[in-house]
Design a protein around this nucleic acid. Structure first.
Lengths: 227, 227
DNA sequence: GTCTATAGACCGATAGAC
DNA sequence: GTCTATCGGTCTATAGAC
């Protein structure tokens, strides 16, 4: 069992709001169809939020923009999500689910270090593609909302446990430096998701996305100093 | 001459507004006293802005807060600075000046690599002390204002040139990897000023500030992988 | 008495919430 | 589509220095 790396010590288990379609279906097809519509729209909303969050960040994203991007009325938004913070949380849950899917896709026939590098590469790709929502770590109302969101915390824990296990394995097999605590390695990897360096390099226009990713990966895993 | 590392290609040279006390003094003592008062207050304002910017970021900082922290009326603020963006720019100019002073203090009897590590250490110290203002790179009105601010651009250029020279020297003397372009190294160092990792580690409470700084420095210069 | 700086009310716009 | 809060920015009456 991998050591549980605590992201937050306070985990108030508030019942997450039931996702749409929680009611018992009376006739399968009809309810299912309705639920599918709702689900599809919810997906569209969360995807739009994800994009806007990656593009402008939480503070500069307005709810009106989200509604306009999805093409629905603002009031309809509030039928699905009760606040702007909830929207952001949904986007984070979405990206955590994608991360879980990616982690699951590479669990076999690769070394722990290779898997960690693949994770970092994936984060950088998502970021450069404008698909990585990054929230300000300073907004307290947003943080409070996230820390009360069970789906978010569960996803974060699951991802962190998996990556944390690989970190420890890589330190044991000697491919990762054992001098750096596993938690520091984990945070350093997470930080690649909101690293401003790829964006600056992309804005510079001197390198392709692929080159940028390899350069940042090299600085992350091999450091700046001559090894 | 070190290669000039372009931070911004568009450098509109707008005349910076004359700092207070530009008029010709009729009687030295009197005008000087008044000017000193103005200067002292301006310093207090910028220092408060610096702290608030480091604590809450640009978007969440309100002008009323700044006035309250300094203990003056908001209207008085606008006698010194004509907009919120100007306030932020002044704080950035201040930190750039401090950076220049620090750079100048270590120009002798140390290797380029040692100097670069000292710079990174200084940034991390400032950040952990809550003295490093970090602006959102997404706010376009703020960026436009900064890019039109001669004092800011000059300071940034000077700092970048100095550090850039050291980077190239370190690559030539073999202590820094020549495989990473100098610009990438420069950005990677700058990114330490807004790295979320030190803050997370500090919030975790497992390490002292000194240990955190050394850990982050190690991941930055030596990388995560076993060398 | 005059002049400047201040305090604090005030305005318009915008964004979140319903 | 409306309501309300908040925030950036301005205006005016007043207090105090000379």
């Amino acid at each position: 069992m991998p050591t549980r790396i605590a992201i937050s010590s306070a985990v108030p288990t508030q019942p997450a709001q039931a996702p749409s379609g929680a009611g018992k279906p009376a006739r399968a097809t009809k309810i299912s169809f309705k639920a599918q519509m709702l689900q599809a729209r919810e997906d569209a909303i969360v995807q739009a939020v994800n994009r806007l969050l990656a593009e402008k960040g939480f503070d500069l994203m307005t709810v009106d923009e989200v509604a306009a991007e999805v093409g629905i009325a603002k009031a309809s938004l509030y039928k699905h999500f009760s606040s702007k913070e909830d929207l952001a949380a949904a986007a984070m849950v979405r990206v955590l689910r994608q991360a879980q899917a990616f982690l699951a896709s590479l669990s076999v026939s690769s070394t722990p270090l290779e898997r960690l590098m693949a994770v970092a590469r994936w984060m950088l790709q998502e970021q450069l593609a404008g698909e990585m929502p990054s929230l300000p770590s300073q907004n307290s109302s947003l943080r409070a909302n996230l820390m009360a969101n069970k789906a978010y915390l569960d996803g974060l824990m699951q991802v962190s446990d998996q990556i944390g296990g690989w970190i420890e394995a890589a330190q044991i097999d000697g491919s990762l430096s054992p001098k750096v605590p596993a938690l520091v390695v984990l945070y350093t990897l997470y930080a690649r998701a909101c690293d401003p360096v790829p964006g600056f390099l992309k804005a510079g226009g001197q390198h392709s996305d692929e080159v940028i990713i390899e350069l940042v990966l090299a600085t992350c895993f091999d450091g700046l100093r001559t090894s």
